[in-house]
Deep mutational scan, measured.
Amino acid sequence: MFKRLMMVALLVIAPLSAATAADQTNPYKLMDEAAQKTFDRLKNEQPQIRANPDYLRTIVDQELLPYVQVKYAGALVLGQYYKSATPAQREAYFAAFREYLKQAYGQALAMYHGQTYQIAPEQPLGDKTIVPIRVTIIDPNGRPPVRLDFQWRKNSQTGNWQAYDMIAEGVSMITTKQNEWGTLLRTKGIDGLTAQLKSISQQKITLEEKK
């Protein structure tokens, strides 16, 4: 169930391209415009997507990853294993993690069937560096609404905000991946996880038929 919630949630996290980005210092504006741009692209490019579902990787690479804190999220997933990894191991892992996100997020976007969304009203940021933004996803086919909290983090150097995690039903996506990959990290280390991520990233994206 959580895996499905995570995939549905990713439908609204794909941010804007650099040329049309919203105010990078306001995570609420980023979330709002990102959702609108993403849904528009999914709707307008269905012919290309249906002809070649792996085209979704391109959308992810162009529109999402430049505005997601990939390395920060990847380091959180590694936890204690990050500090013990060599620079070469980290570089290989982050490259594999990025390719994994292209496949995983692309597969999530393949679930698009006309969903709509509501974003919580903007709250004062103050001096906060981590801000959760509640998004409610509404399914046109009558499924119950899904309420999610996207975690946005302020870059201490640039002042810009980027998304790095999502919490559904009190469970963090980062925590879920830590639990899912924990045994592999304990037995085969970061190299074993890197190899698995490379394998997963090679899987073809498949479209979910409308139910």
Rank of each mutant, 00 (worst) to 15 (best):
Q107N: 15
Y82F: 08
R90E: 02
D23V: 12
Q123G: 09
A73Q: 11
A88V: 11
A195H: 07
T116K: 15
M166L: 09
T194D: 08
M7E: 00
W152R: 02
T206E: 08
D61Y: 04
A108M: 14
K198S: 09
P87V: 08
A21H: 09
Q24K: 13
R153Y: 00
P27E: 02
T20M: 11
K43A: 14
Q123T: 14
T116C: 14
F2Y: 06
F39W: 03
G126T: 10
G192A: 15
A120P: 11
I59P: 04
R57A: 13
Y100N: 13
K29G: 10
T187C: 10
Y67T: 12
Y28K: 07
L56F: 07
G182V: 11
T175G: 07
Q89Y: 05
K43C: 06
I174P: 00
Q89W: 03
I167T: 14
L101I: 15
K37Y: 12
L184F: 07
A92L: 13
L184V: 08
K128V: 09
Q24L: 11
I13L: 13
G189Q: 12
A163G: 12
Y81V: 15
Y67R: 04
L197V: 13
Y67M: 10
G182P: 15
L207V: 12
A21N: 11
D191C: 04
Y67C: 06
P27F: 04
L11K: 01
D149P: 00
L5A: 02
K29R: 08
T158D: 03
E122Y: 13
Y105D: 04
Q46N: 08
Q151K: 06
K154T: 06
W152S: 03
A14P: 09
T187V: 09
P53M: 08
S201F: 10
A104H: 00
Q48W: 12
G189W: 02
H113A: 07
K177A: 13
Q203C: 09
K128H: 04
R90P: 01
P27C: 10
Q24E: 13
I49D: 05
D54H: 08
K128N: 07
D23R: 10
T175Y: 03
G182Q: 15
I167D: 01
A120L: 11
K3W: 02
L109E: 12
L78Q: 07
Y55T: 14
Q107D: 07
L197D: 02
N141Y: 09
A92T: 11
I130V: 06
F2E: 00
N179I: 05
E63F: 00
T176W: 02
L109R: 01
F2C: 05
K210N: 13
Q178S: 15
A96H: 08
P53I: 06
K204L: 08
A35L: 11
L207E: 14
N160A: 11
K83A: 09
D23F: 13
Y112D: 04
P144Y: 12
Q118G: 09
D61R: 01
T187K: 12
R134I: 00
R57P: 12
G74F: 00
D40W: 05
Y82C: 03
Q157P: 01
K177V: 14
A104P: 11
I133Y: 04
G192T: 10
P66S: 08
M6I: 10
T183R: 11
V8G: 05
G159C: 07
R4M: 15
D61W: 02
T187D: 03
K154Y: 02
M7L: 08
G189P: 03
Q69V: 02
P124Q: 13
N44V: 13
P124F: 13
F39A: 01
T175I: 15
L197A: 14
D23W: 06
R50M: 11
T187H: 08
A195Q: 13
Y81W: 10
N52V: 05
G79A: 04
K154N: 15
P140H: 14
N179M: 04
P140V: 13
G114A: 10
F97L: 03
M6N: 01
T20E: 15
L30D: 11
A108W: 02
R50H: 12
G182R: 14
K198R: 13
K83D: 01
L197Y: 11
K210P: 13
Q36E: 07
I138K: 07
P144R: 07
S172W: 01
G189R: 07
Y67S: 07
Y55E: 10
D23G: 11
G182Y: 03
Q107W: 03
W152N: 03
G142Q: 07
Q89P: 04
L101F: 13
L148Q: 02
L101W: 15
Y82N: 01
Q62V: 09
Q157D: 02
R153V: 01
K128P: 04
Q178Y: 05
N155A: 01
G192P: 13
Q69R: 02
A51K: 14
D54Y: 11
P132R: 04
Q107C: 10
E63S: 06
D191R: 03
I137T: 15
D139L: 15
L193G: 14
L76A: 01
W152V: 12
Q123C: 14
P121I: 10
A96M: 11
Q103N: 15
V68C: 11
Y100W: 12
Q162A: 07
A168R: 01
Y105F: 03
K3D: 01
Q118L: 12
L125D: 06
Q123P: 08
K154S: 08
I119T: 13
S156C: 02
L30W: 09
F2H: 02
Y93T: 04
K210Y: 13
V68N: 15
Y82I: 01
L11N: 00
Y72H: 02
A14F: 14
S17G: 14
L56S: 07
S172R: 02
L185I: 14
I49W: 05
D40C: 11
D149W: 10
V135P: 00
D149K: 01
I190F: 02
G106R: 00
D40L: 08
A9S: 04
S201T: 15
K128R: 14
M1L: 01
P121N: 13
S84F: 06
L10R: 00
A168F: 14
I138E: 07
N44M: 13
Q46T: 07
E122G: 11
E169W: 01
Y105T: 00
Q115N: 11
L5N: 00
S84R: 11
I133N: 02
K83T: 09
Q62H: 08
V60N: 03
E209C: 09
A88I: 10
R134A: 01
T187F: 07
L109W: 05
A195W: 10
I167V: 14
V171D: 01
K37A: 09
A51W: 06
L16K: 02
Q24F: 05
K43L: 09
R153T: 00
P87H: 08
K198D: 13
T194R: 05
T20P: 08
A19C: 04
L185T: 14
V68T: 08
Q202E: 07
A95I: 11
E91Q: 11
V60T: 14
L16H: 05
R153E: 02
L101V: 13
Q151L: 05
L193A: 15
E63D: 08
P27G: 05
R98G: 13
